[in-house]
């Protein structure tokens, strides 16, 4: 009887958690990195050979929420937006490292620092207008 009660309690708690998750992503619209991180410089800025690794990491770790081309998927925001790209490299690095448990954005501080900087470098390359990017078939005009 006691076991059944505990199992029932666990199920109720789990259901409440699932419901809480449905609504929490809309609660926090602004997420601002500390001003102190704006002065951080990307150590890989002048190492173009590291760009492909950043793209691979992005596909492995980020594209499930932000789409392969960074234009966003539920619930990850569009990373091409001006208000996103206006942030400093340091802010990107801080957000990738820290995550945000309230929005569901995982923290990636388990990745080595240089890999996180590779991700920052790739985020910047997404918004570069001169760089030709492959369009996904669904978005290609025929």
């Amino acid at each position: 009887m006691r076991t059944m009660a505990i199992v029932a309690f666990a199920c109720v708690v789990t259901a409440i958690g699932a419901l809480a998750n449905e609504s929490h992503t809309h609660r926090e619209r602004t997420w601002v990195a500390p001003a102190a991180v704006d002065s951080m410089q990307n150590p890989l800025k002048n190492r173009p050979e590291t760009g492909a690794g950043g793209q691979k990491l992005f596909r492995q770790r980020c594209s499930i929420c932000h789409a392969d081309d960074g234009t966003g998927a539920k619930p990850g925001p569009n990373l091409m937006l001006r208000r996103v790209q206006q942030q400093s490299d340091g802010a990107f690095f801080w957000k990738i490292s820290s995550g945000n448990t309230r929005t569901g954005m995982p923290g990636f501080s388990f990745l080595p620092r240089l890999q996180r900087w590779q991700l920052v470098k790739h985020l910047r390359s997404l918004a570069e207008p001169t760089q030709p990017r492959m369009l996904s078939p669904a978005k290609t005009k025929r």
Partner: peptide, 16 residues
Amino acid sequence: PLGTIASGTSCRFCRE
């Protein structure tokens, strides 16, 4: 992790 920088290729045996 053994490797600190991600290689550009898809690999199973990379240090990363």
